[in-house]
Design a protein around this nucleic acid. Structure first.
Length: 481
RNA sequence: UCCUGAGUAGCUCAGCCGGUUAGAGCAUCUGACUGUUAAUCAGAGGGUCGCUGGUUCGAGCCCAGCCUCAGGAGCCA
């Protein structure tokens, strides 16, 4: 049967026509006012029921969560608080919702509780808004790259390479775990496994992306990524989505320019296409901040924060410059950092990144040229500086409240340098032969980066826990639903 | 994995120094009211105090172990 989405009805400019609405009950007030939501927008449609001419048994079934059909003329609302309403002439229950058992009430629930009922949390305003924004950002990613002639590459989810060392991996196998085939020395015989070798879920599509970029020019991947790290934080998931562009003939600066353009494009796209959702999330955040002491409240509301991000250039500086700023910073002088900045060469701790981004520059920061020791083997080796310190052409983009949003680099395209570094780190070159072929045949400067999609969604929605911006979060000890 | 905190009604939380029958608001149920905006008013029902063990005349409260959750750290995106 034909029915109209509530979003269209709330925007309607003509009245009197009969409409049919199919939606879920949010609340039923005063035995006559039904607040309906069908997911098409955050707003509810008010349906007014003539309870004197409606069976009492039917009215009793208008419980929060029930699916209903209402039909009647769309009229200007007699009451305050809404512009339009439906005067119900026909009412049907499509699906009951037992009020004794339905866990959502017309009141504020904690995010922790909603996480436990992740299958139902879509029905709340907050998660309606979050997943609209998430969708919009995903769509905008494809739009951005497509407009610029990038090819969307599907890198494999099951990988055979275990040489990359970018974190703990999830094993993929069809072997009988209770009785696996073994070699004479007792080790497991993967020759008998499905792929006749040991396989894992991907931790990054970068290496495959590089192969494609060295032919197609500019590519990007956007898919699920898996890390079996025992991370219990508000910023990590065992299964998350990552965007990884890879560009032939791009040097580090081109790489940074693209990443900054992309982030601004995505934020602007969300602001333009989800104004209601972001406004709702902004107000939600303001409510939450009221509970905090003045000192801990943020200076900018969500919309201002996003706009501020668009209006300012990201601060670009090298690791070496950042160390100097941190060394002379107040918290370092006063020994307030848990990890004091003493010398050059160690990785920055969260507290240092937060100081740079949230206190010193107060905007997104791109850090470049990290010490080679603390970065991956594939990053391009810079010439040592006057003091003989070795760095690589890496770039990390740090965001306030999030930390590392993007991690990327110019890749080492010189075969001898790359193989040399792999030897130093004990990475077996034989297993990476296919990867090294790009450096053997027509090698060229190229660059790329990885964007943690959920971290972007966190920033744009103003949420603070990454488990609340993915439908069904996978974290250590939790893979429910 | 480490550090800190938490776990009491469907939800959010209170529960004093270890002491009789464990409380409140919301939700639910019953009734009243009927242009309400998380409707309102009156009444009622609702508990394995995370689990296991220990101390004690007596444990929601003290002790030990475990489980789960949250925040921070590490790892990273």
């Amino acid at each position: 049967m034909q029915h109209t989405r509530i979003k269209d009805l709330l925007n309607a400019s003509t009245f009197g026509q009969e409409v049919t609405v199919k939606a879920w009950v949010k609340t039923f007030r005063n035995n006559q006012f039904l607040a309906l939501n069908d997911g098409s927008c955050l707003g509810n449609l008010q349906a007014v029921i003539d309870f004197t001419h409606t069976e009492e048994a039917l009215l009793k079934r208008l419980n929060t969560g029930a699916a209903v059909l209402v039909r009647g003329p769309l009229v200007e609302s007699l009451g305050k608080g809404q512009r339009v309403e439906v005067k119900v002439s026909h009412l049907e229950i499509l699906g009951d919702s037992d009020p004794e058992k339905f866990p959502l009430q017309p009141k504020k629930h904690s995010l922790e509780f909603l996480r436990e009922i992740a299958h139902l949390r879509f029905r709340t305003n907050t998660f309606n808004a979050i997943f609209k924004v998430r969708h919009t950002l995903a769509f905008a990613i494809h739009q951005f790259f497509n407009d610029r002639g990038f090819v969307y590459l599907h890198s494999p989810i099951i990988t055979g390479s275990d040489a990359e060392g970018a974190g703990e991996m999830f094993r993929v196998t069809t072997l009988d775990l209770n009785n696996p085939p073994r070699l004479e020395d007792g080790s497991i015989n993967y020759k008998e496994d499905f792929f006749a070798r040991s396989t894992n879920l991907t931790v990054s599509g970068q290496l495959e992306g590089e192969l494609a970029a060295m032919a197609l020019g500019n590519i990007y991947t956007f898919g699920p990524t898996f890390r079996a790290e025992n991370s219990n934080t508000t910023r990590h998931l065992a299964e998350f989505w990552m965007v990884e562009p890879e560009m032939a003939f791009y040097e580090l600066k081109d790489n940074m320019d693209l990443a900054e353009d992309m982030l601004k494009y995505l934020i602007r796209y969300a602001l333009e296409h989800c104004p209601d959702e972001i406004d709702f999330l902004k107000n939600r955040l303001l409510e939450e901040e009221k509970l905090k002491p003045q000192a801990e409240r943020s200076e900018l509301d969500l919309v201002s924060k996003l706009n501020f991000c668009l209006e300012n250039n990201f601060e670009r500086l090298t690791y070496t410059e950042a160390i100097e700023i941190l060394r002379q910073s107040k918290p370092n002088q006063k020994k307030q950092f848990k990890y004091l900045i003493e010398g050059w060469g160690t990785d920055l701790q969260s507290e240092h990144e937060r100081y740079l981004v949230e206190k010193h520059f107060k905007k997104p920061v791109i850090l470049t040229d990290y010490p080679a020791e603390i970065k991956s083997f594939y990053m391009r080796q810079n010439e040592p500086d006057a003091q003989g310190r070795k760095t690589v052409g890496a770039m990390d983009i740090l965001f306030p409240g999030i930390g590392e949003m993007v991690g990327g680099s110019q890749r080492e395209e010189r075969l001898d340098r790359l193989v040399g570094r792999m030897e130093e780190l004990g990475i077996p070159a034989e297993e990476m032969d296919w990867f090294l072929d790009t450096r053997r045949f027509g090698t060229a400067p190229h660059s790329g980066f990885g964007l943690g999609f959920e971290r972007l969604v966190l920033f744009v929605t103003g949420m603070t826990n990454i488990r609340d911006v993915i439908p069904f979060p996978r974290t250590p000890k939790n893979a429910e639903f």
